[in-house]
Design a protein around this nucleic acid. Structure first.
Lengths: 212, 212, 212, 212
DNA sequence: TATGAATGAGAATTCATTCAT
DNA sequence: CATGAATGAATTCTCATTCAT
């Protein structure tokens, strides 16, 4: 009630991003259905009505949150995968390290959780996520593997299968962090996990003597 | 109204299990919050009120669903892991094949999705899932790896990291099936994926010539 | 809180009609948009949620109210119009008297007001009202006039125009009662108005000497 | 920004009238409650906030709309009714023809609809409409009838009843146009209807032979 | 004056839960 | 035990009104 404290401020430019950021927190924490617009509005520091100036419905806002999370890093990683002219093993180490960093620092974990949870209720989002994230990352790695095979660096075998083998621990680390760390499980260092995994999968688990 | 109607008797005892099964379907499809007790009751072929004869609240029913999904197969796999007296590679192949079968045939995929989605809202369930599923499976594999290392079959290195490297593609295959197949992505053969992965991770991706 | 006072009672049979009756009062009083479901529920002696057991939406309830008001009397009047084998003037007196009674005793006035008010927002209702009420009544009178003309009792001229001349004071009396009486205008005796009008329109306003 | 821009100047003074005109459209179309100030502002070509520079509240604007629609024509008709020194039948024909023209060309139909619809929510408006429109028109006709009776041109009988008989088809024609024409009913020519009615009511429907 | 972003009090609708039958 | 009608708290969405610009 102190005069000079405007009830609100005009921020037309910044508002949508602020709201999306706040919504990401709340959606990631509680899931789509359990998230209340009251909470999101409060987190964004606006009134409930203001949400509707920028997003038509709750679903709309949810969609915006998920789409927003996609854009930045994927294209970068994708491009890096093939541009580099180095031995397969080095490219892979760089790439997976980079991916681990992205996962560690961005909000992508929470969004992935949401997409998994709401894939049936929001098939469009699952489709976008598939096309724009999962498939793109996978395809980049497949291409890399194929290049390695052509160069005689990588064993023969289904490149898509190898791609799965390469990246799935990243996903698992992500989910571990999202699901189990909050309830007190030991946190994982995703980068360390990724590096350890890369060495294992490059050289194999077996010792020389144990090989068939 | 004649007492002793056998069909009725049988129903009465089977009711809770029928309800849990129906609830699993609905929860897995729509998530906890979006699932309506009306739907569950209809799917179970009982009245909505009847649900409350067996479960105190919706949360209670959800908890029952998740717990029910855990019990059967884990202990079996766990036991198998160490009991077998074979070379590491063979045990691992058997074990992962077995795991892939379980994942392919049971409803565990839908439940995993639910646990991921509701981990914040139902931390108890996340804890149960961690203790009873994730950690047990992981520990079994860690033990197996350690045994292999002691026998000189497996390279030195963090056994927990190796365990992650070994099982994460199974999880990823699971989620792929739950999330992307319903929207039209190519289905994955989890067993084939698992087998391919095991060979890759046992022997490594690199050719002899490419090794450092 | 007195025990033995059930919080509610099962009345599946009677409820819809009770709700429609209550809704008629509220809708007629405040119009569709200004009527709150809270008020309707309170007037019907049920909870707000109970309305949704019987009607899908507020619009649905409104539609039901309007349709319900139509049914009973129209067909009767319609049938009476032609069945009678009497001189035109007598049939008309009987008929209009009967119509005046219906208007005086039924809730049709409030409903007509609603249909007028919401004709743009609920074109379906306007259509139903046109087909089932306005046009039917009008057509019955048209037929009666034509019969009278054939018998040489009624002057030549557009029967539809005559029909308008015959019944419009009923409508006007209705609206007078709905609109002006509540604010303190002198009430009209619709029956007396109708009878007076019938004599005027049968014999004409002009004296013999004043006729062209 | 140069002061003295004539186009601007003119606008400024015309604004309230423009707003009222736009509001009339929207209110007549959707009713008071369902009309949104956004729509009215858009129709008037001003911002929503600008409405509040000229009208305190939505109700205020509605009131202004209804009052504005009244003023012009009533007094004129009223004066005409008695000033003319002609036979009753001729005056009536002139008068009703004039009234039909007014109804056909002005927005009075939409306003009448609004007054009917909102008479309970805006009793003041019903009162104004009663005093300034309905009663004045009716009284003018009553006076005319009385003059005709005094001159021996009009039969004895309640003049107010005769007045109702005379003008109600105009109202009915109006409502027909507002309510049923938009849903596809055959439009009525209000003037033709009025003329036909006047002849019918002046001379009566019955043939000489059929009179009692 | 004029704008339109922001507010916040409602209102419709949903659904877990209860309880008379 | 079983039912399902009824409840009412909770939530999304709307829109008249305000006010910083």
């Amino acid at each position: 009630m102190t005069p000079g404290q405007p009830k609100w401020r005009r921020r037309k430019e910044a508002r949508p991003a602020e709201i999306v950021a706040a919504a990401l927190e709340v959606f990631a924490g509680k899931g789509f259905a359990a998230a209340r617009l009251d909470d999101i509005a409060a987190a964004a520091g606006v009134s409930k009505g203001a949400l509707y100036l920028y997003f038509e419905t709750k679903q709309d806002l949810f969609t915006a949150v998920v789409r927003t999370a996609i854009t930045p890093n994927i294209a970068e990683i994708e491009a890096a995968a093939l541009a580099m002219d180095m031995p397969f093993a080095r490219v892979l180490r760089l790439l997976v390290g980079r991916g681990a960093d992205v996962l560690s620092t961005s909000a992508i974990g929470g969004v992935a959780k949401m997409v998994i949870a709401e894939s049936r209720n929001f098939p469009d989002l699952a489709r976008v996520w598939h096309d724009e994230v999962a498939n793109r990352v996978l395809s980049a790695i497949v291409a890399l593997v194929e290049k390695g095979q052509a160069a005689g660096e990588v064993r023969p075998g289904d490149p898509r299968g190898y791609a799965f083998s390469i990246i799935s621990p990243l996903l698992m680390g992500l989910l571990w962090r999202e699901v189990f760390v909050p309830i007190g499980a030991a946190p994982m260092n995703i980068r360390a996990l990724a590096e350890h995994h890369i060495e294992a999968v490059l050289d194999g688990l077996l010792t020389e003597g144990a090989r068939a």
